[in-house]
Design a protein around this nucleic acid. Structure first.
Lengths: 188, 188
DNA sequence: TCGAGTTGTTCGGTTTGACGAACGCGCTTC
DNA sequence: GAAGCGCGTTCGTCAAACCGAACAACTCGA
């Protein structure tokens, strides 16, 4: 099956980059970090070069030694724009198998999500200035057609389409016809 | 090893609990999850029992198969019971006032909200047994007509209608015509 | 120009995570 | 009852993650 993303990225190279980035940010040597984390520096060397597949405990001890939360080592730097077209996306079959649910976004711990009903008329373009840092917007278009997304990355959506993008950069809404959508505003 | 740093908790048992919790939430068997994740079920069995120290790739594939972000498998569950007082909530109201959006539900801190696209066909009644205590369901009907709500309190909905009700009591979905809706599942 | 201290890399060995084939159990079906 | 199929567990095997040591390259002082 085609890799149904919705999980951001392959973690292998991400971790390698994150480790080197965070270590250099901390201004310590590879050997020093290995010593603090209680690992062999050979192990760390391989990890930073993208060779190898660390165990949870290994990566965890590196997170502790670096003083960064675990997730920073695993998740790619920033949330990117993601579109799930109507009919795409991972489908969950309920135990009773009576309806089909598609998981669009799973909530992260320590985030709040507010639920809005959003109505747009054509001609009403809205340029939203970046708001709270760390906020993320989720939109499921119920009917109509809109163009939405960060400035320069606008995507045209039809009924059932889903898009998510960072809310802390300038973004843009524009209805191409009378539309309404469900908006979930997520912030830490 | 002292772990006085701001790393939440030892992840070993956390992962074990998270795996079982998320798997049961998805309503699939251990063997089925192992199959979807491309792992041996023996491996998964050991992980859910707290024996073993999975590699990143192993845990990642489980996250993908569960449709859950990686961090949720690693971060400790939010055990704290919290009462949300009337009036307590996000102060985004003013910010969004000029915007043509209706606030349906404000997210509370330390709750998770998962976003689903739900498709229902007529004749497919679904009696959902109560799930995780404290969970709340939000439904915005995008198109069609459905009857939904706790057993005995079903409400008929049309496009744009919103309903919320506790997910931890038995409830009922029934499509009166082909319908789809946005479902937000909220739990502590 | 020596050492003695870094740095990060590569090389055998050992520990261990992941696999697959069993196993026992419970349920349905013939 | 017995055969079939699902479940989750336990066991032996193998690959690989991790280790320790040796390695070249570079920076200091003496």
């Amino acid at each position: 099956m085609e890799r149904t993303l919705h999980q951001p990225a392959p973690p292998l190279a991400t971790i390698a980059a994150a480790l080197r980035r965070e270590r250099e940010r901390a201004g310590i040597s590879l050997a020093e970090l290995a010593r603090r984390a209680g690992l062999a520096k050979s192990t760390l060397s391989q990890l930073e070069n993208g060779t190898g597949n660390p165990s949870i405990e290994t990566l965890w001890s590196l997170g502790v030694a670096l003083g960064v939360p675990f997730s920073r080592l695993v998740e790619p730097p920033e949330t990117q724009v993601r579109v799930i077209r109507s009919g795409e996306g991972p489908r969950l079959q309920a135990d009773e198998a009576d309806f089909i649910a598609t998981l669009l976004a799973a909530g992260a711990p320590h985030t709040r999500r507010d639920l809005y009903l959003m109505e747009l008329e054509p001609g009403q373009a809205r340029d939203a200035v970046a708001h709270i840092p760390g906020s993320i917007e989720h939109i499921v278009l119920a009917s109509g057609r809109i163009k939405a997304g960060p400035v320069g990355e606008e995507v045209e959506l039809g009924p059932g389409d889903y898009i998510t993008f960072p809310g802390d950069v300038d973004h843009h809404y524009e209805a191409l016809e009378p539309s309404w959508a469900v908006l979930v505003m997520e912030h830490r």
